[in-house]
Design a binder for these strands. Structure first.
Lengths: 343, 343
DNA sequence: CATTGACGTTGGACCGTTCCAACAGTAAGT
DNA sequence: ACTTACTGTTGGAACGGTCCAACGTCAATG
């Protein structure tokens, strides 16, 4: 089972390795009969050209790298699906890199990336800090497209959803139901999308002549325990300041909120309305089904892949780097209801 | 911003490329002072060695490939986490390949794999058919470790959870609560783990002197609609054959079951008990919280990575390829209760 | 003083492809 | 018969690293 090289195939089919190479690259210049013979030989010995050698010689690996912060978020699957659908009928192949831990950014992955492993990069929902690094790579000639980092993309092409409108829709929906004190479970405030959603909510409030109340905002990061604690604290506010609606900036946080409310004996939506964001599929299965905002994740993947491919294939749009904002959509389910009468 | 080569670095630091190469590979033979100088030069021009060239020359890419059937399953994240934790302090890097669609197996990914892109492979929950291909690769010298495919691993090393005991525990739990008619929402029957779980349930039934009733088994694949339909059909059975407990072979199917029961006005667990399998984190948040079996996903990843690394680093265990079976654990929540009195 | 060994460094073959310039052979055009 | 064009094939120089055998220096050893 010794590894065969192109040289072996050439010898076995009585040709030069140049010709075999031409066959490998589907050159029209090679005689059909010859081609058939060579292919037969390759089949028979199931020869596969060496990735490293090909990459070195061609100066191109045919790999598109996708960097995701983790796999725990369900919507990564959707984004990935979108990207895959576009890439699968090109000559490129997708490889995923996950950064399970913080320290790794700028470390190993970074080294792998800049070593030319990937011909292009799709980076999802990256933290703010290492963005500069990506800009460097991009300037150095490695095409990069961002997903879900619109606010901070800078000169990099990016596609994302309209988080601002998402927040706005939620705000209007709740205000329309008569809610006046709407609390925010922000998650990690540092992320651009959080800022956007918040801005959307604020704009809705102001439309209604209200001012955002900082006392009703809770930063929580992603830790479930913290989400629960903050939720409890909001419930413990004096009655005249207690929120009648909770806006969790992620569905997963909303689940924890629902659970905490249940345990506290608060009825949803009769006593308090709850909304999430993202519309991951569990949102429809939770009790009560969650009102939330849907992001077109698969589309985001598709568009990002499209941009990347067009620059990889040299369909260099001479315009400015594109930033694409896709629509978000309010999905009303049963976790929101008219605000209880103020007594 | 032209790409620098090792030759450039050599010239810039007044040395031969051999020496620079030694520095790159942390050889102890190079003078500390020299090393410092070279590193300084590399920093200054932020030089990164070419992946392809290194791989070609070394005959090793330092990449561990992980092939997963998709990202939609939450537990993939846990497996990946386990693998990553072990790999992250080695010289290896993980790359993930997803197979979004069927046709792709044996196609592009396969070609990439056998081209030597990865030094080793971890394959999760692979379908049965293309296993032969993996065996070929393995025989051809590419180390492969399987996760969650124990039943069909054959000569390949594999790690999985004890699905049989999982099924057994569920069976005993339900029987202990007085249930006699236990229905199975199997999912895709073809998968080895489904067979194992079923066998576990059967063994429990037989322990109790009962025979499995094929009329209470529903094959559903992964389609939610089908799960719902089968659930409904089971409910529509005549009262004396209608199940008092539903065992869904995946938590996600269990969610659909719960939902369908709710819509049919059937109370859980008062009228019917429901159990799932996997203990994905949403299982605790659903109403009622789901009784299920926990699989040690992260551990599975860790162990698999351990095996792979040991053969990659030549700590070739001379024993037979290892097959590791990890314990599963019954998690009792509120979706199961004593069977309603038979009338 | 000649020999040995250790230490750092180096030239160059090699890894398995691609790709270009050159080539032989045949057909068509004048 | 003589160029011209075209078709299919080929040798060999890249691509950017690794690694081995060889080399010069210098200190220690017999």
């Amino acid at each position: 089972m010794a590894k065969l090289t192109i040289r072996d195939i050439a010898r076995l089919s009585g040709l030069s390795k140049s010709t075999v190479s031409l066959v490998l690259n589907n050159s029209p210049k090679v005689d059909p009969e010859t081609r058939r013979r060579v292919i037969a030989v390759m089949r028979e010995h199931n020869y596969v050209p060496s990735f490293a050698a090909t990459a070195l010689a061609k100066g191109n690996t045919g790999l598109i790298g996708m960097i995701v912060p983790g796999l725990t978020w369900r919507f990564m699957a959707d984004i990935n699906y979108g990207v895959a659908k576009v890439v699968e009928d090109t000559k490129y192949e997708i490889v995923l890199f996950t950064s399970t831990n913080e320290r790794d950014y700028g470390g190993a992955i970074d080294r792998v990336m800049s070593s030319g492993l990937c011909a292009g990069l799709i980076v999802v929902n990256h933290d703010k800090q290492p963005l500069d690094r990506l800009v460097d790579l991009h300037r150095g000639g490695l095409p990069v497209v961002l997903i879900d980092t619109l606010g901070a993309a800078g000169e990099l092409p990016a596609v994302g959803a309209d988080n601002h409108t998402g927040g706005l829709l939620i705000g209007r929906h709740l205000l329309g139901l008569g809610h006046r004190r709407i609390a925010s479970i922000l998650g990690p405030v540092g992320h651009p999308y959080v800022q956007e959603r918040r801005r959307g909510l604020w704009d809705a409030l102001r439309e209604a002549g209200l001012e955002p109340d900082p006392g009703l905002e809770a930063e929580t990061g992603f830790e479930e325990a913290l989400v629960r604690r903050r939720t409890r604290e909001l419930l413990d506010l004096p009655a005249d300041r207690r929120p009648t609606a909770l806006f969790a900036y992620h569905d997963s946080a909303a689940f924890a909120v629902l659970d905490e409310l249940l345990q506290a004996g608060v009825r949803v939506p009769e006593d308090v309305s709850v909304v999430g964001f993202n519309d991951i599929d569990a949102a429809a299965h939770v009790r009560p089904p969650l009102t939330t905002v849907r992001q077109p994740f698969a589309d985001m993947g598709r568009r990002a892949a499209g941009i990347l491919l067009s620059v990889l294939d040299g369909v260099e749009s001479d315009e400015e780097p594109r930033q694409i904002v896709l629509d978000t959509e309010l999905i009303v389910r049963e976790s929101t209801a008219p605000a209880p009468a103020d007594r």
